[in-house]
Design a protein around this nucleic acid. Structure first.
Ligand SMILES: [Mn+2]
Ligand SMILES: [Mn+2]
Ligand SMILES: [Mn+2]
Ligand SMILES: [Mn+2]
Lengths: 218, 218
DNA sequence: ATTAATTTTTAGGTTTGTCTAAAAATTTGA
DNA sequence: TCAAATTTTTAGACAAACCTAAAAATTAAT
């Protein structure tokens, strides 16, 4: 009923709505994230509104309806479960899986999704620390902060990233910063807000503010 | 480069060419198997010929080019590997997997295919006994016969099916006929060519000729 | 060897999702 | 506040993959 393309729009609307703190998503924002032109987005919004998957008032941006949110969450659930599979079972790195999951997230079979979930041990978070919604769409919650907001001497655990680009993830790999590692803040530079941290109580590592802003810790 | 739809055409052309013993596949044959009309098939054949994926002389049917065969075999490889995954890892029955594999066979990632193959232990045959081509397209060979052609008193091993419909597979399940089981032919009815067989040296089972014709044994 | 039946192709359209260019609405800001 | 800048929508087209109806080629039958 919902095409590959429609599913992608719904997923992106969901994510941008989250990012905007719940307020409407604009046509141009969507055009950027769908790699299309605003005119194409307008066409699609008309269609999604027709199908009652989004709330759409011309020129006012969109939000998802219950039904649209349900589909979006199902796509996100599949994306993240497949990412767990790719890393845990097939041995991919966390920087290699996104594009493959972009394809797998559209495979249409409830039984498959639920059996995969069970096979993986009902994981709560994906390899980037993103929460995996359950079959009903409920997200596991976890309060986290940006590393850049943590004060000197505190010790925290790395629980996620806010940027998923291979370049960023590979940079973390090179510095041994992995999900679950412990981080003690040794020093914060007055000048450039860069961090010197102690990883797992053993290794001293330099972290630029740009990186610290995109690391989630708890 | 090759769309979902094109891949399906190539795969079906490959399989029908095999069935025809290597000779050309007709437009109507393809229309049946693609669930479309002959006119649509004609359009697609023109396009596939343009891309040098098939050898096409109007009104004379088609065969695959080297390039077309290569793509077809890659799709078949993925289909059968995913079927192994669904049965061996997720616990699906062999009667439930075909439609899911029809989707998964189009996921485009060589690394994924090769890692999946390794994860599964480089299987040679899928859950229906069909051979899985290797990364270069080479099929493992296995000489087999139809059960219906085996003589009384011989003992053979069940190695495949020539029909994949859920109804047929469920019928086999109900009679405990599974891949790898041993079959001793106790009696063949003169009247209707039906078989009475001994399964795994223990159980006596009745098999109609219609079923025996679609069971492959060795 | 013609004619009849069948198969295949072509012609002309539709739907989905995209595009560019132009028009309309909204927002900014002098 | 009202004109300029920006954003969004509409108009008109296009490619992919399908359709129906009609024409052309092949095959089968007298
Ligand atoms: Mn991802
Ligand atoms: Mn992720
Ligand atoms: Mn199958
Ligand atoms: Mn199979």
């Amino acid at each position: 009923m919902t095409s590959f393309t429609e599913e992608n729009y719904l997923k992106i609307i969901y994510m941008l709505t989250e990012q905007n703190g719940g307020s409407e998503v604009s046509t141009n924002e969507l055009a950027e994230h769908t790699q299309t032109k605003a005119a194409s987005v307008s066409d699609m919004l008309r269609k999604l509104a027709e199908k009652n998957l989004i709330n759409y008032r011309k020129y006012q941006g969109v939000t998802l309806t219950k039904e649209g949110q349900h589909i979006a969450l199902s796509v996100i659930r599949k994306h993240r479960l497949w990412e767990v599979f790719l890393v845990e079972k097939l041995g991919f790195g966390w920087d290699e899986i996104h594009d493959i999951a972009e394809q797998l997230e559209h495979i249409d079979s409830k039984e498959l999704t639920e059996k995969l979930d069970k096979f993986l041990g009902n994981p709560q978070f994906d390899p980037h620390g993103d929460p995996i919604p359950d079959a009903k769409g409920k997200m596991p919650s976890m309060s986290s902060h940006k590393l850049s907001e943590i004060a000197v001497d505190q010790t925290v655990v790395m629980v996620g990233v806010t940027v998923h680009s291979p370049a960023f993830l590979q940079h973390l790999d090179k510095n041994n910063i992995t999900l679950g590692c412990s981080i003690r803040i040794q020093e914060v530079s007055e000048f450039d807000k860069s961090f010197t941290i102690i990883l797992n109580n053993t290794q001293s590592v330099f972290v630029s503010n740009e990186v610290a802003k995109n690391l989630l810790v708890k």
